[in-house]
Computed example of a mutant assay.
Amino acid sequence: MSTCQNHLHRGFVSLVGAGPGDPDLLTVKGFRVIQQAEVVVYDRLVSADILALANDQAEKIYVGKQLDYHCVPQDQINQLLVDKALEGKRVVRLKGGDSFIFGRGGEELETLAEHGIDFEVVPGITAAAGATAYAGIPLTHRDHAQAVQFITGHVQKDGKEMDWQAVAQSNATLVFYMGLKQSGYIADKLLTHGLSAEMPCAIIENGTRPEQRVFRCGLSELPNVAKQAKSPALIVVGSVTALHEKLDWFHGDA
Rank of each mutant, 00 (worst) to 15 (best):
Gly88Met: 09
Gly88Pro: 11
Arg90Leu: 04
Arg90Val: 06
Val92Gln: 03
Val92Ile: 03
Val92Cys: 04
Val92Phe: 01
Arg93Ile: 00
Lys95Cys: 02
Lys95Phe: 05
Gly97His: 12
Asp98Ile: 07
Asp98Pro: 09
Ser99Cys: 14
Ser99Ile: 09
Ser99Lys: 03
Phe100Leu: 15
Phe100Pro: 02
Arg104Cys: 11
Gly105Glu: 05
Glu107Asp: 11
Leu109Ser: 12
Glu110Gly: 02
Glu110Ile: 08
Thr111Phe: 02
Ala113His: 07
Ala113Met: 09
Glu114Met: 01
Glu114Trp: 00
Gly116Ala: 08
Ile117Gln: 05
Ile117Lys: 01
Ile117Glu: 05
Asp118Ser: 10
Phe119His: 13
Phe119Ser: 04
Glu120Leu: 07
Glu120Gly: 04
Val121Cys: 04
Val122Asn: 03
Val122His: 02
Pro123Gln: 06
Pro123Leu: 03
Pro123Glu: 01
Gly124Asn: 05
Thr126Met: 05
Ala127Trp: 00
Ala128Lys: 07
Ala128Tyr: 05
Ala128Arg: 06
Ala129Ser: 14
Ala129Lys: 00
Ala129Val: 12
Gly130Leu: 08
Gly130Pro: 09
Tyr134Pro: 00
Ala135Trp: 03
Ala135Gln: 03
Gly136Gln: 02
Ile137Ser: 10
Pro138Glu: 03
Leu139Phe: 05
Leu139Val: 03
Thr140Glu: 02
His141Leu: 06
His141Pro: 01
Arg142Asn: 10
Arg142Ser: 11
Asp143Trp: 04
Asp143His: 13
Ala145Arg: 06
Ala145Asp: 06
Ala145Phe: 08
Gln146Asn: 14
Gln146Met: 11
Gln146Ala: 13
Ala147Asn: 11
Ala147Gln: 12
Val148Cys: 15
Val148Leu: 11
Val148Lys: 13
Val148Tyr: 07
Ile151Met: 10
Gly153Ile: 12
His154Ala: 11
His154Asn: 14
His154Trp: 10
Val155His: 11
Gln156Arg: 15
Gln156Met: 14
Lys157Arg: 13
Lys157Gln: 14
Gly159Lys: 11
Gly159His: 11
Gly159Cys: 07
Lys160Gln: 15
Lys160Val: 14
Glu161Leu: 12
Glu161Phe: 04
Asp163Gln: 10
Asp163Met: 04
Asp163Tyr: 07
Asp163Pro: 14
Trp164His: 11
Trp164Tyr: 14
Trp164Glu: 08
Ala168Met: 11
Ala168Leu: 10
Gln169Arg: 15
